[in-house]
């Protein structure tokens, strides 16, 4: 089974996602960025676009963001911070 890591997606008004995932694709400033477990420490700016999440349970989650944001990878903990509340549809 693929190695998993922890993902948190936060907006100023609520927590949008919190759980174990296998892979993540996010719209970073220089283009879409794929992240798997054991990724090197990274801080990236995010543009608006689609955040694609593959969960450990096998499900797929798609978050479409309307705002910019930030992404941090640190010790298999990934945090995505969106900068406005109405960011996701």
């Amino acid at each position: 089974m693929a190695k998993e890591f922890h993902l948190t997606v936060l907006s100023p008004t609520k927590s949008l996602y919190n759980g174990k995932v296998v892979s993540l694709v996010a719209p970073a400033a220089l283009g879409y960025l794929g992240i798997l477990a054991d990724h090197a420490p990274l801080i990236a700016g995010l543009k608006k676009g689609k955040i694609m999440i593959k969960e450990s349970s096998g499900g797929d989650v798609l978050l479409e963001t309307q705002t910019r944001g930030f992404l941090e990878v640190k010790n298999n903990n990934v945090t995505i911070i969106l900068d406005r509340p109405s960011g996701v549809c």
Binding site: A28, A40, A44, G45
Partner: peptide
Amino acid sequence: HFMLFEPDVQKI
């Protein structure tokens, strides 16, 4: 700590 930045520290 060692860290990667995209696009760079200043911009972020």
